[in-house]
Amino acid sequence: MVETEKKVMARKLGRLVRAVWIFNWFNSCGCTELLPVVSSRYDMERFGLIIVDNPKHADCLIITGYQTIKSIKRVVRIYNQMPDPKVVMALGSCPITGGMYWDSYNTIKRLSDYIPVHMYVPGCPPRPEAVFQAVGLLVEHVRKLKEEVSRK
């Protein structure tokens, strides 16, 4: 990466991390398991995360549950429609390796073959704490990036 480009990316990600707006593509296990993340017990809003209702407002696309061949077309279109500094988080084992649908004829096996995935959160279903740890890792990565840029 050219020096200035890295500095710009560090600044953009630095701002993104404090107010991540999530577009959720929750189906199958995601919807039932990931609601506590939003509700008052785990409350993701204390980190500035809110769920937005369309990809054009969102920065982070969370995909949980298996994707069929029909639905992955929509996922790719949704991913393309998101404005640029964007992050994709694959939750649960289904998007990572196909999960328990590894030998089903209708589901796709690896999400990363179709869209670039930045964070994998294993678990079938994934725990809410795992989601926060993933966001924590994103913050960690950005902090390291900023340090590296400021040191230069």
Partner: peptide, 27 residues
């Protein structure tokens, strides 16, 4: 958030939101 029993975002959150929005692509 407090009325819904949640902790709720920091008070500076709207400023973070706007700063982030200014950094995003304007489609």
């Amino acid at each position: 958030a407090r009325m819904q029993g949640r902790v709720g975002p920091p008070l500076r959150q709207p400023f973070y939101d706007v700063l982030k929005l200014l950094e995003k692509e304007c489609i």
